[in-house]
Structures are given as structure tokens and as C-alpha cells.
Design a protein around this nucleic acid. Structure first.
Lengths: 166, 166
DNA sequence: ATCTTATTGTTGTAATTTACAACAATATCT
DNA sequence: AGATATTGTTGTAAATTACAACAATAAGAT
């Protein structure tokens, strides 16, 4: 086996892990993983507004908006007008949404466990710690360090507000 | 910070790590990371044929074919007809391609080092070992185990020939 | 030999995804 | 009041990805 670049290896792993799981979720719940992710973000933050949500979502606001309207149409999420600001509304998960999560979340956890079953228990703990360290560093310092060393890197730095995933 | 699913976290990390690097490579060498990857695969396996290459590439044969023809047009790769089988040809990196790699590869390594600089030296070693374990297991056993536990997972299992990345 | 079937690599194109930018509605600042 | 900024939605272009047809050749079967 040729030596792999570690970033590529990461991408491969997540792709291999996510793709089959994604299929299951679509079959069982009629939701793609992105929609599920948005559902969870709303569920965990009752009353979020769109802008906050979109910043956590890792895809475009436009995409988030469309996913959200599908969730609302499916009655998994509802929205209320904000009393103070008529431009905003607050998002809430519905009972139906909660019910769906009660089925979906254990399945997600079971799938993750299955993937991590390749590792010894303490290795698993260590691995997750390392991942936290890495994502933290990437979100916080990487781009800055990169442009310091390579001024031509062309840092974009647009949105920010990452590292709040789910 | 909300708790993240580990697969999602992996995807985020690789995306954050790859995107800025990708920009640099495009500016400096006029090659996107995929083309660079193909160039490396060819360089490391002088005389590969297209089918073998495409299996290692993680994208469609059609995409691989187009990338390859760009590399050939740019004179970074050349091809020879196979003596035994007129359908096949054998691929080789050119001197110009080697030269490009001599610039690009150290940069890749430096970038990976930069990313991993967030980790202590022994943590780094451990991390890479864990990644190897994981990708190995995913390539070898995951899909089988998944369909055993969840017969509705809808395993596809089309190509195979993975775990030979670069 | 010839006929059928399989493989190799390329190409056209449909489908999907992603990004961008314009927009109406409302709020805030001067 | 008028100018500027923010919120969320929508239209559409651009890029990506997937699929399937294809010509050229090889291999196997009768």
C-alpha cells in the first residue's frame, strides 16, 4: 500500500463511513443526513434563528434555507415570529420531529459505535480527544498560521462561527 | 459546544485542512488537488494502466479519464501503447511531471506537518496508526458487518480495490 | 474461422450540488 | 426622513458527479 496523505485519508474515512449510513437514513426516515443535521441543531437549540443556524451548518445559507423549508413542510420543525424583530423567526422542533429523532439518534450512535469498534476502548477515547484538539486548532489558529507562513495561500476567512457542530 | 458526531467531525477536519491547501496548489502549480493526486499515483507506479489507476482514484472513471487527459496535455504524464494488448496503454510521469512533484511534494508534507503541529509528537504517531486501523477496517469489514446488522442498509460494494490511496 | 461476449478507455449528457447575487421586508443609524 | 444594514428567500449560473453509450480490441465458444 502506497503511503497516503493524511488529509486524503481523513476524507476517505469520513466518506466511507458516512455514505452507507446516509443511505439507511434516507430509506428509513426519508431524510438526507444534512436535513437530519439541521433537525438536530434546531432540536438542541430551541428558538434559534436562521442566521445562527446557518452559521453552524457548514453549507450555504441558501441551502440551509431550502432544507429548512422542507423540514417545515414535513412538520418536523415549526417557526414562530420573533416578537421583537419582525425579520426574524424562531425555530423549534415539533413533536413529530422529536419522535423522529428518538428513532434516528440511537441509530446514529450505534453506527458510530460500529465504526469505532475497530479500535480498542482506550484508543477510542484517545482518538476522539485528538480529533477535538485538531478541529479546535483548525478553527482557531490554522488559517492565520498558514497565511503567516505562506502569504500566497489566499486565506478567505469569510464566515467564522464554526466548531459548533453536532 | 454541542456534541459532534464523529463522522461529521472527520469530514469537517478534512475539509478545513484541504481547502486552503488546495488553493495554494492551484495558484502555484495550476493543478487542482485531484490532478495532483493522479500525477502522484502515476509517478509512484510507472506503467500503470488506466483501469488500475481509476480504481485507486476514488472518483469516476470518466472523471479520471478527463483529469488524465489534462495531465497529458500539460506534458506531465505521457502514455505508451501496451505491446501485448492494444486496448491498454501504460502511463508514465514525464520529467516535467517529476520536476513539478519535486516542488509540490515538500509543500504537501509541510502543510500536513503544520496541521499536525497541533498534536504532541507521540500523539501524532498514535493518531496516524489509528487512522490506518480505521481505514483498513472500513475497507475490509465495515460494509459486510453493516449489512449483517442492518439488512436494509443497501450495501453497494461496487468497485472494491480501495485502501491503495496516496 | 466466425460469432458472441467481455474489457479498455473516452465521450456526451443528464442530474445533482454548490455558489452567487438579487431581492423584499424590516430594522437601525444619522 | 433618508441612508444603510440585516434577515431570510429565491432564481440561476457554474461546477461536480454520475450514468450510459460507444468504438476498438481481446478472449472464449462452437
Amino acid at each position: 500500500m502506497l503511503q497516503q496523505s493524511f488529509t486524503y485519508q481523513l476524507a476517505s474515512i469520513s466518506e466511507d463511513a458516512i455514505k452507507p449510513a446516509a443511505k439507511m437514513f434516507e430509506r428509513r426516515f426519508g431524510l438526507d443526513v444534512q436535513a437530519l443535521r439541521v433537525l438536530r441543531l434546531v432540536g438542541d437549540q430551541p428558538g434559534v434563528n436562521f442566521t445562527t443556524l446557518a452559521a453552524q451548518t457548514r453549507f450555504e445559507r441558501s441551502a440551509t434555507s431550502r432544507i429548512l423549508s422542507r423540514l417545515i413542510k414535513a412538520a418536523l420543525v415549526r417557526r414562530e415570529l420573533d416578537e421583537c424583530d419582525a425579520r426574524q423567526f424562531r425555530l423549534f422542533i415539533t413533536d413529530k420531529g422529536i419522535e423522529l429523532r428518538q428513532q434516528a439518534d440511537p441509530l446514529s450512535l450505534a453506527l458510530e459505535d460500529l465504526i469505532l469498534s475497530a479500535l480498542a476502548p482506550d484508543e477510542r477515547v484517545q482518538f476522539r480527544q485528538t480529533l477535538d484538539k485538531l478541529s479546535d486548532w483548525l478553527a482557531r489558529a490554522f488559517v492565520g498560521e498558514l497565511t503567516r507562513r505562506y502569504p500566497d495561500a489566499g486565506a478567505v476567512l469569510k464566515s467564522s462561527a464554526r466548531s459548533k457542530g453536532r
